[in-house]
Amino acid sequence: MSALGARLESTWQKLLALAERRLPALTRLRAAEALPIRLHRRRIYVLPTAFGIGFGALLVIMQLGALNYANNAALLLTCFLAAAAWMSLFAGFRTLAGLELVAIHAAECHAGHALPLTLHFHASARARPSLRLRIGTHLFAFALAAGDGAGVAIQLPAPRRGWMRPGRMKLWTDQPLGLFVVWSWINPQTSILVYPAIEESAPPLPHGPGQLGERFSAGDGEEFSGLREYRSGDPQRRIAWKASARHDGLLVRESEVPVDDNRVLSYASLHGLDHEARIRRLTAWVIAADAAMLSYALELPELRIGPGLGHSHRHACLRALALMPDAPQ
């Protein structure tokens, strides 16, 4: 039964995709658009829900009963109920109309993990209770209070490294009575970079080229040799706070051993692993080196980054890894 359901579902999706390719005007395929996206009346659709249709049938029965018994009190009650039901359509429309998606923020995410997204909506004068968002098969429910712009946190699965588009989202509500569904499609032109997956229990970091040359000093490379200006990416613990206090900008202690620290994480050196596995290991090493505060360089087939250390270096490396072309077939 479920197999049949899955087949039907996939057939339906194929039909839908075909229809959207061939009849974009009819299916309202929305090309990706730049943020902010504002929901106005020309892109908001309304239909009764299954419950709404059933409720309508019930109202007809009630109306007929009241008319048959020539009972005006019952008729009046039914009229009021029907009118309130109809007005719920307008209330539902107002829940969605004027809603504006301003920005989409993503936190760092590695493939295989959930991608945390924050959708920022523009502040509006009225509350928008009970909105729902469907991306693919993922459903999120949220509400926006009046007056304040709000970020709505959702999580999407990110199975692959590289650029990811949240894709078409259906923003819908059946406020306030569940009789009518009011919806709009949005397709924000936002791409989110998903970093490669991290190899679990990766081997330890390779030694740097220091083994070829002489070690300048023992210990942790903390031998003081001089001060220089702070450069973005320098680890915090190297900042000479006392010296910086007497100076305009931040100063960083330079040690004698930077060369020794300088690990080279090389794609080419990882023999015996397939393309993606190499990327996973390099990713694990970048993260490990960054956590250990060891300066490192990343060598990819067509790119060399570093040596360096720090936040921006790390992200440059991870970005390069994420955007590595797929393995040649």
């Binding site: 008319l67 048959n68 020539a70 009229c79 309130a84 007005m87 719920s88 307008f90």
Partner: peptide, 30 residues
């Protein structure tokens, strides 16, 4: 709920006034 009912008053009044009443019952004898 009160807002919906309140907004519905004109519609309900129109429906009540203009829904044609039956001259004779559709089923049964009341």
């Amino acid at each position: 709920a009160a807002l919906l009912l309140g907004l519905g008053v004109p519609l309900a009044a129109a429906a009540f006034l203009f829904t044609p009443r039956l001259g004779s019952p559709l089923w049964g004898t009341p």
